[in-house]
Amino acid sequence: MMNKEKVKGLLNNALEENSELFLIELKFLADNKIYVEVDGDTGVTLKECIRISREIEHNLDREEEDFSLEVTSPDVANSLKVKRQYTKNINRILEVKLNDNSMVQGVLTKVTESEIELKWKAREPKPIGKGKVTVNKSAIIQFENILEAKVKIIF
């Protein structure tokens, strides 16, 4: 039986060495596979993933348990999972899918304990006369109303 508490402790020690890093997900999968996803306020280097991996591996006894370990950083295509990821992405464009399946896209301008704020520009018909005018829009969205949020990568 995999000692999950020991793995968590080793992982926490490894993360504490760099205050910019934070855990996204720790999963114990079939066949003693340990999956660790970490992020950092300014991203995660391969070097840091290797350091965390070694810190866990070198303190677990392979004689006792055979295991495989994967330490990875989030894929940009994945949805944001923890609040600190939102904070890290302030001033970037987010595509947010709400619980009612509607979509909102805008620049993430603010993150609080319970909500985020997005701002964007929209073209709307002029209140008087013909033609369109560009207006600034914003939305405050509660975390509980977010189905998924992804950073929009613009090339």
Rank of each mutant, 00 (worst) to 15 (best):
E25G: 07
S79I: 00
E117Y: 00
F22N: 12
V111K: 09
I128F: 11
E55Q: 11
I141F: 06
Y86Q: 02
I90R: 05
E37T: 10
K83A: 08
T87P: 02
G40D: 12
E148S: 14
D75W: 01
D75Y: 00
V36E: 01
S68W: 10
E57K: 10
F143A: 03
R92I: 08
L10T: 01
L147K: 15
A30M: 12
T87Q: 02
K8D: 05
D66Q: 11
A122F: 02
K152R: 14
I52L: 11
R62I: 00
T42F: 13
N12W: 00
I93N: 06
S19H: 11
P74D: 06
E144N: 14
K150V: 12
I116M: 07
N101V: 03
L23D: 04
Y35S: 10
D66E: 14
L10S: 03
Y86A: 07
F143H: 04
F22H: 12
K33G: 09
D41Q: 08
I116S: 10
G40E: 15
N89A: 12
K121S: 06
T112D: 14
V133T: 11
L23F: 01
R84L: 14
K81W: 03
T87H: 09
E148W: 12
P127C: 09
N91L: 13
T45C: 13
D75Q: 01
L21R: 03
I116W: 07
Q142M: 08
D75N: 09
N136D: 15
L108A: 09
V71N: 05
R51Y: 09
V38D: 02
E20D: 14
V82L: 08
N89F: 07
E25L: 10
K152W: 08
K132F: 14
K47Y: 14
K126F: 02
V111F: 07
E64K: 10
H58Y: 06
T45F: 10
D39S: 06
I52E: 07
L108T: 00
E48V: 01
I154F: 07
I141N: 06
T45G: 08
K33C: 08
E20R: 14
N89H: 11
D75H: 11
V76K: 00
K33N: 12
I56A: 09
T72H: 08
A14I: 02
R62K: 09
R62P: 08
N3E: 03
L118R: 02
R51A: 14
S19D: 09
K119M: 04
V104Y: 04
N136R: 15
A139W: 04
A30Y: 03
L46F: 10
N78D: 15
D100Q: 06
G106V: 02
D61Y: 02
T134P: 06
N101P: 10
L21D: 09
H58S: 15
K4T: 08
F67D: 01
L118E: 05
E17L: 13
L118Q: 11
T109E: 13
L80M: 00
E64L: 05
V111R: 00
